[in-house]
Amino acid sequence: MKIRSLKNLTNAHNDSIWAVTWAPATADRGALLITGSVDESVKLWKGDELELDRTNTGHSLGVVSVAAHPSGTVAASTSLDSFVRVFDVDSNATITTLETAPSEAWLIQFDPKGEILAVAGGGSGSVKLWNTNNWRMEVPLTLPQAEASEGRSSEKHSGSGKFVLAVAWSNDGKRLACSTMNGVVAIFDAVRGKFLHTLEGHSMPVRSMAFSPVDTRVLFTVSDDKHVHMYDVESRSLISAFSGHASWVLSVDVSPDGSCLATGSSDRTVRLWDLNMRAAVQTLSDHSDQVWSVAFRPPGGDGVRAGRLASVSDDRSISLYEYT
């Protein structure tokens, strides 16, 4: 288990890059890297040389999140203006524009089957769901009021704590996790649309989460408290806690084989964690500013042997690594 820097593309955008994801390979092409930046653009990149495929405009204010449909043909991006733009990956044709007003749209994720797009609903304290067939909004999953502000009397403004930042689907599509500014991680039964319980352990913003692709019970969360937590979502127990980052941990992704974890942090590093040893095995310092997002390339596509990991940063660069 190892990652090796392949390329650091500087000035990939004109401003900080906040989001990265991979559009899976299709029959016609390999996987594409999609990045979103404060410069209001979304860019698509090809191959190991990170050749710019296209630049999508249409967002005002910074792009906060990008997500790709498992089919690889559709992707979505959100920005600070709270619009969700769904577009065709290959033609950039706008499929639909979703609005979550008056609340915000923060991180977004398609479910593993590609039937539903989940959008972290910011101040609404809920996760908004759209059916990808007709782009109709379904009943949102709302955090119970008591859970959102539980034991945090110190929050000066009611509601600021339950701001929903991130969402994550379990690999079987049965569970959906959402996390908030005050560290609450809530687990929903996605099939029945029911709130199940919360996971204890963080008291600071949880900005990113990822389910294990091999064990649907296992959820990884990262927080401003500099920790990575590993939970069993069914028993609500904290399996392990990883420390080592010097500042906020901003994003997490699990390797496709489920044996490794990559995290990006405000401390400008990307760390690789071995889940068997439960320890950091590598620290990469390609970036010179906060690393806002990391993403492993999903398996599949022609002529693809080794895995890839991408990271993006406030330093306007994209880093590509080989994962073996």
Binding site: V38, G62, L80, W106, G122, G123, S160, G161, F163, L165
Partner: peptide, 12 residues
């Protein structure tokens, strides 16, 4: 300010 919002989105 956009940067700040990104850090603390809950601060309206």
């Amino acid at each position: 300010l956009l940067r700040a919002i990104h850090l603390v989105p809950s601060n309206y």
